[in-house]
């Protein structure tokens, strides 16, 4: 199913399979390094957050040091950067596999849908492979023609990044 078929009908609630298809599409774009297209999935005021693992999962980036706390501008710059050869940490690009499961719709109201799912993302860089895992929280905006991501928070279940080293890919 393509993203076009996922258009939100006025006031009609979105279903879990529709949300799943959207999240699978997002994962596929990341795995294929089609990052500019991935970026198009976001609203203009979107945020992308990865809190550290020694504070509450819903902590605010306004008064805590995160791993990543991108507004839409910085997220765009992140994508631009990762598409350059001079983003040394990701050159040559890692191979990644974003796995998603346990998708649940938590709420939907006024065109905004809160979704949670579990994730495991595998990464191979040179001779090393490792993985990230935890929970994703998406706020989806379904008020327009296309589903858009208004907020994405990645809650890691590891203690820090001792096995992963860094988050140079997008989770």
């Amino acid at each position: 199913m393509s993203v076009e078929t996922l258009k939100a009908v006025d006031a009609a609630p979105i279903t879990r399979p529709e949300v799943e298809d959207f999240l699978y599409l997002e994962a596929a774009l990341l795995d294929e390094w089609r990052l500019p297209e991935w970026l198009d999935l976001f609203t203009d005021d979107a945020i992308y957050d990865i809190p550290p693992t020694d504070i509450a999962a819903d902590a605010s980036s306004a008064n805590n040091l995160f791993y990543i706390a991108d507004d839409r501008y910085r997220l765009g710059e992140r994508v631009k950067r990762l598409m350059k050869r001079t983003a040394h940490a990701e050159y040559p690009h890692s191979k990644t596999r974003h796995q998603i499961s346990n998708v649940r719709i938590l709420s939907q109201e006024a065109g905004l849908v809160e979704v949670t799912c579990n994730f495991t993302t595998y990464r191979t860089k040179d001779d090393f492979s490792n993985f990230f895992f935890g929970r994703l929280l998406h706020t989806l905006d379904i008020s327009g023609d296309d589903i858009k991501i208004k907020a994405k928070r990645v809650v890691l279940d590891t203690n820090g990044l001792r096995n992963q080293g860094r988050i140079s890919i997008i989770l």
């Binding site: 980036s61 306004a62 008064n63 040091l65 995160f66 791993y67 040394h88 940490a89 988050i167």
Partner: peptide, 26 residues
């Protein structure tokens, strides 16, 4: 001011920043 401080930090520093991951790679 705290916001500028943290924003500046994350742009450059740390394992998800725009600079530190390249240091790690080096």
């Amino acid at each position: 001011a705290r916001q500028f401080r943290l924003s500046n930090f994350l742009e450059f520093l740390g394992p998800g920043g725009f600079a530190t991951p390249d240091d790690v790679e080096a």
